[in-house]
Design a protein around this nucleic acid. Structure first.
Lengths: 210, 210
DNA sequence: TCTCTTTCGCTACGAGTCGTAGCGTAACTG
DNA sequence: CAGTTACGCTACGACTCGTAGCGAAAGAGA
């Protein structure tokens, strides 16, 4: 789960300064805001955090790994409050995700690390566990809640249920990311409402016809 | 529409070597395959294309602009053959788009230039006209065809029709990109079929309720 | 044909970044 | 106290960047 380079396994010796981790990750996010992904340098981050550049390289393998950790912390905020109905829950998660993507540090970092991950399998795995899975939980939780409400039928086949969840997740996350970053149009309440209507209609059709 | 730096406006003088453009763009795509976005250097591209590095800088402002042009050419291949039904048309465009995203050169380049564009407005505009709009045409053509078949109702309000097309486009393109690049799962015929079922159901619900 | 203009390949350059190595010092363990 | 590890600092070679300057090549117009 950690993309940090672990401290030496052997016992004894000076422990790592935990406060430095916090300062480094916070400085990374601030540097992303000020400079964007491509102009961000590890030397700059180190100077902002008040640590030596070598300390950074002792803890992270490179720029991508550091930025993944810095951005992943922001995804901890994601939650799924019960808004009473599946439609309201979907709108809520869409707007929450959009708010996260509205931040300049996530905007520039998220696409960049995904681009890097296309030719770096370990990095992709880190992104999956640190970022993607945290979003996916919301989809699974939302479905479970809707099934308990009776808004969605229970799915006996676990494999099919997994495929459906994967599909829904790609549709939600993909649409929001594309709207926010590629089309560069606002993900406001009206858009979220239109999108939710579309998705709910599709769900009804897809579940009635396996 | 051109992201290239235009040749000098004044008449006369030695004309630009048009073959060099072809060689440069082709070399750029090959370098993307071999090196990926982050390790691609303009000096390397120039060497592969058999031109001087300075020639590259005379025609393109930087790495992002060059890669956008190199990748945009691939999106010319996109077409929308009439497969007889809206469902078949959607599946066709999804699989076609997925095939494009399956290429290593588009995989690594597309996300990277979008990431850059989050802090570079002119670049975003170039991406929109060179790449995004070429995909969007397919959505508009598909809807028009479906309306002529009677599969979709005509939309009297042009503003609402535009919003709907934008939404559909973000859903299709976003879902395919997310599936292919973030989830890193194959966009095969089965997935395309499931996705099409979902989208068609949503369309039916969304158009019945304005 | 001669002149003007622009592009081309080539070389060279200062500036900046990268990731690492070496050193002395600080911090914690047994 | 001795042993071990993390830290800050400096310095380094290698690389990339984007630009400048040069002479030669390739067309347009007189």
């Amino acid at each position: 789960m950690q993309s940090r380079i672990p401290p030496s396994a052997r016992t004894g010796g000076r422990p790592r300064n935990a406060a430095a981790d916090t300062a480094i990750l916070e400085s990374t996010r601030q540097a992303l805001v000020d400079l964007g992904w491509s102009k961000l340098t590890l030397g700059d981050v180190a100077a902002r955090a008040g640590v030596a550049k070598t300390t950074l390289y002792r803890r992270w393998a490179g720029k991508s790994e550091l930025v993944v950790d810095a951005v992943a912390e922001l995804f901890d905020e994601l939650e799924l409050p019960d808004r009473g109905s599946l439609a309201a829950d979907i709108e809520g998660v869409v707007l929450q995700f959009a708010a996260l993507l509205g931040r300049p540090e996530t905007k520039t970092a998220l696409m960049a690390v995904v681009a890097e991950s296309t030719s770096d399998e370990p990095l992709r795995e880190r992104i999956r566990t640190s970022i993607v899975d945290r979003q996916k939980r919301l989809v699974l939780a939302g479905r479970k809640r809707a099934q308990e409400r009776g808004e969605l039928p229970p799915e006996p086949d676990p494999a099919a249920a997994g495929h459906t969840a994967d599909l829904i997740f790609d549709v939600i996350a993909g649409a929001v990311v594309h709207r926010a970053l590629v089309s560069a149009e606002p993900v406001d309440e009206e858009w979220a409402h239109r999108f939710t209507l579309l998705l709910l209609g599709g769900l009804a059709a897809a579940t009635s016809r396996p």
